[in-house]
């Protein structure tokens, strides 16, 4: 798993490259927090175009980050989910707190 960040105008783009499961969850959590806590961006977009795998462990990671950023009033958006990730997002209602947007990091 690689967590890549890029700031553009008032947006922080974060790309998750690899597989997000129980094994990589802790690493992902720490690196997302590091990128998000430092940011002065008005909004965050988490791009999943290069996320080759995600299970419901990923939902826990994302909701945890949402709670932290909510305190700072910085909204988080999701872009380019896989078919399976999209189904998990829909069944958990994740899009109601992290809406899906077009576009990504590249």
């Amino acid at each position: 798993m690689q967590v890549k960040t890029r700031a553009h105008k008032n947006t922080l783009f974060i790309s998750l490259d690899g597989e997000l499961d129980e094994f990589t969850a802790e690493y992902t959590r720490i690196n997302l927090d590091q990128a998000m806590i430092q940011t002065r961006a008005a909004q965050i977009v988490i791009d999943l175009a290069n996320l080759r795998f995600m299970d419901s462990t990923g939902i826990g990671v994302l909701i945890g980050r949402y709670k932290k950023m909510k305190d700072k009033n910085i909204p988080i958006y999701i872009s380019n989910p896989s078919t399976q990730a999209e189904r998990i997002f829909k069944m958990t209602g994740l899009y109601s707190i992290m809406p899906k947007v077009q576009g990504g990091v590249s």
Partner: peptide
């Protein structure tokens, strides 16, 4: 307390 979604079995059922 561990940021777990509680959706594992639901995902299995759905997939």
């Amino acid at each position: 307390d561990q940021e777990r979604s509680g959706m594992g079995f639901t995902v299995m059922q759905s997939f």
